[in-house]
């Protein structure tokens, strides 16, 4: 199993990186929940305007890794990170980092849709308001419409913006959460199993949406559904027991992985 520990660069044997600049660069990152190490020596770079999928069995650390990218783990007491994560060359764990500003740039959609117990309008308006993004009421309304359109939910909710967001269906709630994240115009969108609680049709809509959004955003999606990873992502990273086993172009990972472990996982031999 020692091969698993080798740095990523020696493992990536597939096609070269896409011709977009590196957006997120992770070097030798270790992550701990208290004394328990959840991620070991992660080194990977993620390119701009590319959809990267994190796959792996439950508890492999893929969600934890995703949450290090907008420092969402900071709100869990006792967590600790070693190594270096940069976004556009800026160390996001430097003491001078403005975490609130970071989360504005790195939006997140959660596994379980979590609209606020407010109206559809207010759900989107909240992020705009706390970040002081809307200059006027009409500007606010324009931005809300724009983000609901971007999340492909405008037609379904345009006549009921004042109704409670919790009256929406699960798939609609999740697209509302995507709209909420898009409204504050992030550069990166993190999605933590965004479709795991949805039916196939709602899932398909989310996947189509991801495909449309990647021209504007750098997207990282965690999924335990390998077909989904194959469908939506350009690049895939496979995690196992807190380690990054292999990453590369999605087609390579699924058809011609360098590691036996990856092959066993993507062919369904375990996980």
């Amino acid at each position: 199993m020692t091969t698993v520990l080798r740095p990523l660069s020696t493992l990536t044997t597939g096609a070269p990186h896409p011709a977009t600049p590196v957006k997120i660069d992770v070097q030798g990152m270790n992550f701990y929940y208290g004394a328990k190490q959840a991620l070991s020596d992660i080194t990977i770079s993620l390119n701009a305007n590319v959809v990267t999928a994190f796959i792996g069995p439950s508890g492999c650390g893929k969600s934890t890794f995703l949450r290090t990218l907008n420092r969402m783990n900071d709100i869990i007491p006792g967590t600790r990170l070693e190594g270096r994560i940069t976004i556009d060359g800026e160390d996001i764990y430097a003491p001078s980092t403005d975490v609130v500003g970071l989360r504005r740039r790195v939006g997140m959609v959660f596994q379980k849709s979590n609209p606020f117990p407010k109206s559809i309008f207010e759900n989107i308006a909240y992020g705009l308001r706390i970040n002081g993004l809307a200059t006027s009421r009409s500007d606010m309304e324009g931005r809300i419409e724009e983000s609901l359109k971007a999340a492909a939910i405008w037609d379904e909710v345009k006549d009921r913006l004042t109704e409670s967001a919790q009256a929406l269906s699960g798939g609609q709630q999740q697209r509302l959460c995507i709209a909420r994240a898009l409204a504050i115009q992030p550069e990166i969108l993190l999605m933590d199993e965004p479709a795991s609680a949805l039916d196939p049709i709602a899932t398909q809509r989310i996947e189509e949406l991801i495909y449309e959004l990647k021209s504007t955003y750098t997207i990282v999606i965690v999924t335990h559904n390998m077909q989904q990873a194959a469908r939506v992502s350009d690049r895939t990273a496979f995690f196992w027991l807190g380690r990054l086993v292999e990453s590369g172009p999605t087609a390579t990972i699924f058809t011609n992985p360098a590691e036996k472990l990856t092959e066993d996982y993507v062919t369904g031999r375990f996980g």
């Binding site: 907008n70 969402m72 709100i75 500003g101 959660f110 379980k112 979590n114 606020f116 706390i130």
Partner: peptide, 17 residues
Amino acid sequence: PMSAREGSYALGATKWQ
């Protein structure tokens, strides 16, 4: 629920907000 807090933090809200 934690999810309500996370949803808010993820939008760039401060702790007090």
